[in-house]
Amino acid sequence: MESLAARAAGCPGRVVAIEAVWDGDTVHDWFVHLMAITDDPAGERSLATIYWGTAVRYLGEERAPGSLHPSAAAADRSGRALAARLSVPFHFASPETPDDEAPRWRP
C-alpha cells in the first residue's frame, strides 16, 4: 500500500479516481493494470500491473476456489484500499470477467 500511495502522490495533477483495467497477451494471459486517474491533461498513470503469479502470492490462502481471477481479486482489494486512503472513487467495470473493452471510469 505504501508504494502504491507513493506512486499516486507522484502523479501530475490531483488523483480523482483509482481504476482497475483488464489487459492481456499471449505471454501473460489476463492481467490487471491499477491506474490513477488525474485531473492533469495526461489523464492517467499506471501504478501497478498485477499478473496472475504476483496476485496469487499477494493473496496467499485467502483466495477461494471458484472466486475471482487472482489478478482481479488482488486489484480489487488493493485498489479499494488505495482509493479509500486517497478519498477518491474506485472503478473496476468487469471484475468477474476479463474484458479489455469494459467501460472506463468517467467523472
Rank of each mutant, 00 (worst) to 15 (best):
P95F: 01
A42N: 14
G10S: 05
T49W: 06
V56K: 15
L86R: 11
L86S: 10
A73S: 12
G43T: 11
V27N: 07
G43S: 09
G60D: 10
G60M: 09
L4G: 02
G66R: 12
A6H: 10
G66F: 03
L82W: 07
A55T: 08
D39G: 13
P95Y: 02
D99Q: 03
D25R: 06
G24E: 12
D99S: 09
V88H: 11
P98G: 09
D29I: 00
D29L: 09
S46F: 03
A6W: 06
G10M: 07
W30T: 10
W52P: 00
W105Y: 13
T26R: 10
E96V: 00
V88S: 12
D76H: 13
E2M: 13
H28Q: 01
S46G: 14
D29T: 09
A83G: 09
P107Y: 00
L86H: 10
W105P: 02
D76V: 11
R77W: 13
A6G: 07
A81C: 06
V56D: 14
A75V: 11
A20D: 06
E19W: 07
R85N: 13
P95R: 03
A5V: 02
R80G: 04
V21S: 08
A83E: 10
A72G: 03
E19G: 07
R106F: 04
A75T: 08
V88A: 12
Y58H: 13
E2P: 01
P107F: 02
R45Y: 00
R57A: 15
P103W: 13
S94L: 05
R106W: 08
D100I: 01
P70A: 09
A17I: 12
R57F: 12
D23L: 05
T38R: 06
R57G: 08
S94N: 07
L4V: 01
P65A: 05
M1R: 10
A55Q: 09
T54Y: 14
W105V: 04
F90P: 00
F90A: 01
A81P: 01
S78T: 15
D39I: 12
V32Q: 06
L86K: 11
A73G: 06
